[in-house]
Each structure stands twice: as structure tokens, then as C-alpha cells.
Simulated scan of single mutants.
Amino acid sequence: MEYVCSVVRGGKQQAAETAGDQPRVAVIFNPSKQGVENLRKAITEVAALQGFAEPLWIETTVDDPGKGMAHEARESKVDLVIAAGGDGTVRSVAAGLRDSGLPMGIVPIGTGNLFARNVDIPVNDMRDAVVLAFSGLDRAVDVVVADITRPNGDTETHTSLVMAGIGIDATMISSTNPDLKKRVGWLAYVDAGLRALPASKPYRAYYRTDAGRLHRSKVSTILVANLGYLPGNIELIPDAQLDDGRLDMAVLQPRNFLEWLFIWRKVTWENPVLRKSAIGRQIMDLTGGSRRREIVYSRGRSVDIEIGEGAEEFEIDGDEFGTVVSARFTVDPAALIIRVPSLD
């Protein structure tokens, strides 16, 4: 231990003499999150141990949750960017780093932390996440690009790392109690879902993947995903991979409450358990699981969705984004470099 400490001290002394040669890190953080002081302490300590110069700290704002700050970090010629916050901060920073080749570490201090959970970044140990941000492996992942049209005809472009949805999932998110979300985290979405489901009504949608056949159906929601795992051992879209250059679409079209129960069984039992073994798949076949149509999956490089009448609620990575009348999703393959514990 004494030898290790002396090496670290010697390394720090030598680095101080040639500060211009030290790698630099920019930390983009949401100042409204709890634990910011602990974050500053952990990053400052680990940066010094890793031979980095004093971190550049950049706060997000209500008007800009991270994209402009990522551009500022790029202009500052840093070697690493750390996004510290929830899924909104991570997504916005990723949008600013897209196609830059600059690695992004993630320190999750939000409530859902969906992306961090999907790539095995520690969500309950800040220091472990900080160490991983500095010393993890670089992995190139896809970014979902959403070009949406508002009811007034305005168009916008947004990015997604986990999944975007049009329909009841977005309605559920928009009705989530923010105070409850702060207290219990992602469980607040369960409360919102129980309140939104009884009042939900399907809508007419036209959709297609790539240049394939145009489908028309009454749906409760359409999800376009880069990743498919949700907290609570819910495997919503089992084949979604964040580095395969493809989008995964799930169309939920239950006709009654019983069929909602079938969907629940599929995402909590069939997808995460039964489909992973030969015996489980046989059980699915015998019980009709592979033939049911309450939830339908498809894959492609692009997804086009148009609302048949009116507008529907829209969400990205667990954040509400108002209403839309149409959306086109495309994949930007290997557009973002993130720090992860393994490449598996």
C-alpha cells in the first residue's frame, strides 16, 4: 500500500510540473440534484488519482439540460466528458457529443437512470460510477434520432438513448407526481400508470419500418427503442441492442383489460424468463404466447409513425415532450462513445 501511495504521489508531483500535458475532464451536472457536493468531492479525488488536471465544472440550466454544455466542453478541448444527472441530462449531453468521438462517462444521480441501468453503470454507488467514468472501457453505441411534427406544423429533432413512445406511456409519464418521483424514484411511474390506464383510449396509427408495408391499427402506444430493459425486471423489448445499428419497435394494441394482463405477463415473465431456455419457449408455444398479438415487435433502420386523428402524448427516455401528430425515427450507428464496465 505504501508503494502504491508513493507512486501516486510521485505521479501527481510530476503531473503538476507538466500540467499542460495532463488530460482534462469536463463535468456537466444538474445542480438541482441531490448529492452535488459529494459528486464534486469524488470527481476531484479520482481525477487527481488518475492524473487529470483540475476538472472543468459546467452546470446545466432549465432551458438547456446539457447539449449546449457538451458543445462548450468540446470547444474546451477536453479528453473526457462526464454527464452527472438523470436520464434527461445524460440524453442531452449525448446529443451534444454525438459523432464527436469524445468519450462520455456517466454518474447517475437521477431517479430512473434507465440508460445507466441498461449498460451496468452503478446507480447506487457514486464513487464506483466516478471511477468507471475515468477508467472504464470505451464502447460505441447507437443514437436514436427523432424528427417530430407538432400539432401546429412545427418540426423538431431530438435524440434518444433508451426508448421513445407515443401514447399511454407518454400520458403516464406526463401525469407522474414529481414529489412522489423524488421520494420513491421509478416506482412513481407505477402509480401514474395505475391512474392513466383506466382512462386510456386507443388511437388510430399508421406506421412502418424502413420502406416496408404501411400498417394501420388502433394502438395504445408505439415504442421505438435502442434498449428494452426497465426497472423491476421488466424486459419490454427483449431483442433491443444498443450497438446493432437497428431500431426495435413495439406496438401495444390490447383490446381490453385481460389483454393488458397478457402484456404484463409477457414483459415480466415470458421475455425475461421463459424465452431464455428451450423448455421455456416450449411452454410459450403451448400457452399461445408466441401467437398472441397484444404486443407486436419489428425491427429496422427507420420507423415512421403518423397519428390518424388529432395528436398524442410523446415521451423520450422517461421525460415528457408534449404532443405530436407524426414522428420519423432513424438510427445513427455507433455515434456515441460511452464508458462501461465491460464490452459484453
Rank of each mutant, 00 (worst) to 15 (best):
F314Q: 09
S174F: 04
T323M: 14
V123G: 03
S160G: 15
K67H: 10
I295P: 02
Q50F: 11
F321L: 07
R265L: 15
D210L: 06
R301P: 01
P31H: 00
T159H: 12
K201Y: 00
T268W: 07
D120M: 13
T18Q: 10
W264M: 11
R255C: 08
A250R: 02
D285A: 15
I316A: 03
Y229N: 11
V325S: 10
V325R: 08
V340A: 08
I168F: 04
D154P: 02
W269N: 07
V143R: 09
T209P: 04
N271Q: 03
G88Q: 15
W260L: 09
A94R: 10
Y3C: 13
L194W: 09
G68M: 05
L261T: 15
L242W: 06
A84T: 00
R98F: 10
C5Q: 15
G300M: 09
V36T: 12
A278P: 04
D64M: 02
R98M: 15
T149I: 00
Y203D: 01
P231M: 08
I237P: 08
V90I: 15
G88L: 14
Y297N: 00
Q241L: 13
V27K: 05
R265D: 12
T61A: 10
Q22P: 02
W57D: 09
V296N: 11
V123Q: 03
A250W: 00
G68T: 09
I166Q: 01
V131E: 13
Q22S: 00
K181C: 08
R328H: 04
I295S: 01
S92N: 15
T176P: 03
G66D: 09
D169N: 08
V78C: 12
I263A: 11
W186P: 13
R204V: 09
V331F: 08
E37C: 11
E37V: 12
T287N: 08
N152L: 03
E156W: 09
L132G: 05
L39Q: 09
I295E: 05
N152I: 05
P341K: 14
Y229P: 01
D99G: 05
L223F: 11
R293W: 00
D64S: 10
P202K: 06
S342T: 05
Q34N: 13
P122M: 03
L49Y: 04
I106M: 07
L49W: 06
A240T: 06
N38C: 12
E37D: 13
D87C: 12
I148V: 12
V8W: 04
P238R: 02
E235A: 06
S100D: 12
D125R: 13
L242N: 12
G105W: 03
L194V: 01
L242V: 06
G245Y: 02
R216Q: 05
G300K: 10
L114C: 10
F115E: 02
W57I: 01
A84Y: 01
Y203V: 07
D191P: 08
D138K: 14
K12Y: 04
D244Y: 06
M172D: 11
V119R: 05
P272N: 05
N233R: 14
Q253R: 07
S298K: 13
L39I: 13
F134I: 03
T157E: 05
E315M: 15
R246A: 05
A47W: 13
D244I: 02
V27G: 03
V219H: 07
L274W: 03
V119M: 08
E45R: 13
V131C: 08
D317K: 14
E309G: 08
